[in-house]
């Protein structure tokens, strides 16, 4: 069971921040993901687990506005109390703006989320400029503050990401995503490709940030230990469909579906 109970899932909130209705995406005859529906509430962290090819990354690309689903709706509350937006009904330009401001996307490979030839401070500050901030001193100050929060020395603010280790690049990407104070963050295998010791540090950092900021987040991972540490709820996917969903520790400790039982019994201890 979870040792630390997340304080975030506040029941007082009246409605979800994201409402996903019957989302499907096909690659020709092949199913990418089929008929996925769920609501995500403010402060909730949802994990999507399954093996490679299960459709979890396809689903994430649809939810985060990267790929248009073939059917279904993704409704998002951009600011508290605002009307839901159907993100794929928005003009391309508005959707891109939303993705850079109200949302954050943490890619598995930091190179997909960073500008490698721009300084660390520039990578973080760029997001504030997207939001309309123009005061150079304040932007630099906020960038330095975020570098410290993700445990990168502020003295390295002018270094380029290529001079950083893989773990540092990933932490820089997280700073770049969180600096604009998004309402919703998507993470695709955020600890994939990192050494175990580097993973542990990143996981702890993510755990604390998610908790302190009260973020809503959707995390795709094949690592059940990561899911247990970071998420409140889980969806288990197989062949493009959700086969089981529920409270994270319940799904992992008392799995009901044959496939989830296979997944949880295939690891030594989570």
């Amino acid at each position: 069971m979870n040792a630390l109970v997340s304080p975030n899932a506040l029941t007082g909130t009246l409605r979800p921040i994201l409402s996903v209705r019957s989302v499907s995406r096909f690659y020709g005859e092949r199913i990418g993901c089929a008929d996925v529906s769920f609501d995500l509430w403010p402060g909730e962290v949802l994990g999507i687990v399954g093996e490679s090819g299960s459709g979890k990354s396809t689903l994430l690309r649809c939810l985060s506005g990267i790929d248009r689903p073939d059917a279904g709706e993704v409704l998002f509350e951009a600011t508290p109390g605002a009307d839901f937006l159907e993100i794929f009904d928005l003009p391309e330009q508005d959707r891109r703006h939303l993705m850079r401001t109200a949302w954050g996307i943490v890619h598995q490979n930091p190179r997909d989320g960073l500008r490698m030839n721009v300084s660390a401070g520039g990578n973080v500050g760029e997001r504030l400029m997207d939001r309309g901030d123009r005061h150079y001193g304040r932007i630099r100050e906020a960038a330095a503050d975020w570098l410290t929060r993700v445990e990168i020395e502020a003295a390295r603010i002018d270094d380029q990401p290529r001079q950083f280790s893989g773990g540092m690049q990933q932490r820089l990407q997280i700073a770049r995503v969180l600096v604009s104070n998004p309402r919703l963050v998507f993470m695709d295998e955020p600890t994939g490709g990192l050494d175990v010791s580097v993973q542990a540090r990143l996981l702890d950092l993510l755990r604390v940030l998610v908790r302190d900021l009260g973020l809503a987040a959707i995390i795709v991972t094949h690592d059940l230990a990561v899911a247990r540490l970071l998420t409140d709820r889980l969806m288990v996917m197989k062949d493009g469909r959700v086969v089981e969903a529920g409270l994270t520790d319940q799904v992992l400790d008392d799995p009901q579906h044959a496939y989830t039982q296979l997944l949880t019994s295939a690891v030594l201890a989570v």
């Binding site: 069971m1 109970v5 997340s6 304080p7 975030n8 899932a9 506040l10 029941t11 509430w41 909730e44 409140d232 709820r233 529920g246 409270l247 994270t248």
Partner: peptide, 17 residues
Amino acid sequence: LPRTILEVRRRTLGFVS
């Protein structure tokens, strides 16, 4: 719902293992 269970755990229901 999961979020309700988490809220009940946060303020009302503790587990000592």
